[in-house]
Design a protein around this nucleic acid. Structure first.
Lengths: 213, 213, 213, 213
DNA sequence: GATGAATGAGTATTCATTCAT
DNA sequence: GATGAATGAATACTCATTCAT
């Protein structure tokens, strides 16, 4: 969905390109946007030159990963809209599930420069606009439904979403997982029209839950 | 307040150390934890050698900055508790005002390693424990007051706090500022015991508010 | 005229080979002998692999260009001899007009290695010998005519020629053009038979003095 | 003479800088301006980082070498003027002896870009202007003396000089040496005032004709 | 203690050349 | 034969850290 470069690539080249993007995605996710290109190439099983045949420089690679993420997220979001019975449920699912989108946000955040890059590449900019447009539709529909408070806008929702796009400071344990879900629930609750508190998942977290030693 | 290295330093050395920590703090805040040591030294008005006389390596410097931040945050938090009339207000003030504390979180997040470092240095670990203990007291008191929902714990509060410790992805404009404040308000609201929505600051943000082009 | 590789080439292969040599010639002329092979291939409208099917490596390509130049220069020189009424006029025309020959010299100068390469390929060496022989005839004839000073030899003439084979350091403006022509005139004048010549150091240089093998 | 960077350097740093320039000079002379910086550093007996501490990039190094050459040439030229009894003899000596100056010309020729670089650095530009001014004085004085033909200008002399700034295409044997000297003699002879000169094309070239700014 | 020059390992990127399609 | 993707060695440049002055 908007992921291919203009001229068709030979099948093997296409496969390499995809493997590079995948490798980059996971290195960026775990080591940040400065992850060594050589490692990325090695993970993709190609020589460094091959990486550079496909992407002019690090920035181009980052943009490609961001676009790829955005496209996947967009697909997920479309599915959510199609399959969920209410706009609110779609919104919840979009926010809860889009791991890919979160990485996009992280990259954009870390490389403010990339923002500009994305806008220049028509394809990338398209994906971005589509994502925003879709979110906007869902938000407005949820407000019509009366499930989303009406004093927030799509921008507010996107912003809150961006908050969750960061890795949490504690290691990736079951507790961290739980913490993350509880945060998400609290955030969603604050967006909900009406009063009553939902039940939060798991149990309240106290100091002893977040301190290892 | 727990900031000094064991042996007393000559006055000028002490001053250098402080200037380095200050310089590092602002470079880390603006350029992230990979900011070049040479630039930090230059900003502090010292030669690189001097920086390394005081701090064995980048990690030591990060730890020092984190401790320093924590100490300042602790002081602010104490003031909040002393001066605000309710635990809730104290909590709000702590969460809203502690820029220093947010930076600490960011550093810890980016350098998970530092976590361990901090725990090893008795002094640093002390500050950390004190901060957690204070927050814990405020949280429990706010729950007794009936102002904080009782299905969340200190760990949840800290976690939400951590979310706000990241820079937002859009540039530092008035809108970004507003977005940030609205997020904070929503977060606080989700922690609040009881129903009614507060009025959010400013106006709802829509796509056109967060898109430049 | 001595330009074809031993076995006959298919017509399209032949055309490719020629286009590559032409492209290389102009890249070498404008960007020097280190011009990227990929660019040369692109200019020739072929893929890099095709370039390498015709020429084993950069050196082979340079040799081919040098030979090609030499052949063209030889043709020009023959025409000059045939059409000019005196040996002196022929010499002047040869020196003034042979842009191709100048490039040959430049390449040989930059890649002393190529010298050896040229001598090994019978065909290339033939062209070289023919060029020298022709020049030698013209020089001796001009001296018989009494138009060329007799204390210089073919080697001296070739050497002065080599001097003009380099691009001038100032940009390619009208002035540069003029400067270049004035130099040429001065050089020719110094070769002219006439009164009151200084004694030149050493002895006249003849072909055997500048040819190793 | 205009060779030192603004602030005084520590003695050892100064020595390193000089050794780097010397090493670069000889690598550039023998391998052209693309000679690997690492080799240059090794020849100078320093690590690559040291080279880059002194010179921001290859271009800066080239500029430094060019300036250094120019300064040496300037000194030689001053000596020639002071010690020779006629302007003509001074001119001959300047042209014959300035090996350093020839290298400068070669670098400028190969890196047209460097021209611009040189003009930006005040010090470099000064040296260049001084050299031209000195040559101009000698030329005009030689013409007053009646030893230099009056239909040539300083620009023409500089241009002819530039011709000799290139390495000759044959290896560095005794014959090559001789060839080179004979060329020089012929060139000088063509500049000599005397009878029966041909008319040169255009007009004499003076400094203002070959200087852009 | 402070200085700032030197070090050298680390990394991005280029490009001649090879090889699978 | 042609193609153009892949290779990987070569090389410039950076920056954390060490050390002579």
């Amino acid at each position: 969905m908007g992921d291919e470069p203009q001229p068709r690539l030979r099948a093997d080249a296409r496969r390499n390109r995809d493997r590079i993007v995948d490798a980059a995605k996971s290195w960026f996710a775990t080591h940040g946007p400065e992850a060594p290109t050589e490692e990325i190439a090695r993970s993709a099983g190609v020589a460094p030159g091959t990486l550079y045949r496909h992407f002019a420089d690090r920035e181009a690679l980052i943009a490609a990963v961001a676009v790829n993420n955005l496209d996947h997220a967009l697909a997920e979001a479309h599915a959510a809209v199609a399959e969920e019975s209410s706009a609110w449920d779609a919104l919840v699912r979009i926010l809860r599930q889009s791991t890919e989108l979160r990485l996009s946000f992280r990259l954009l955040t870390a490389y403010p420069h990339v923002h500009a890059v994305l806008k220049k590449e028509r394809e990338a900019d398209n994906s971005r606009r589509k994502m925003i447009a879709l979110l906007d539709r869902v938000v407005r529909r949820a407000q019509s439904e009366g499930t989303l408070r009406t004093d927030v806008g799509t921008g507010d929702v996107a912003m809150m979403f961006a908050l969750l796009a960061h890795p949490l400071s504690i290691e990736w344990t079951t507790t961290a997982q739980l913490a993350s879900e509880r945060c998400m629930s609290l955030l969603l609750e604050s967006l909900r029209a009406g009063e009553a508190h939902d039940t939060l998942p798991g149990h309240a977290l106290w100091p002893e839950d977040i301190t290892t030693g």
